[in-house]
Amino acid sequence: MELKANMAGNVWKITVNQGDKVESGQDVVILESMKMEIPIAAEEAGTVAELKVNEGDFVNEGDVIAVID
């Protein structure tokens, strides 16, 4: 499953590593946009197959942040 950014912003923190198991609702990445922290959480439980961003990257709304299997 692809996890997408729900708004444009900077990747402030990545809170998981590739290969980690995540729960549904667990934060994967925290974006910063207009000085707001935007947590992007896994929508289903699974394993982080791929992280598509690095801390400091700019993402647009709809960009894929991570793939969770």
Binding site: M7, S33, M34, M36, I38, E61
Partner: peptide, 11 residues
């Protein structure tokens, strides 16, 4: 609202 509109509430 769509989440992307949330920062408007800060302003």
């Amino acid at each position: 609202l769509q989440p992307r509109r949330a920062p408007q509430l800060t302003l």
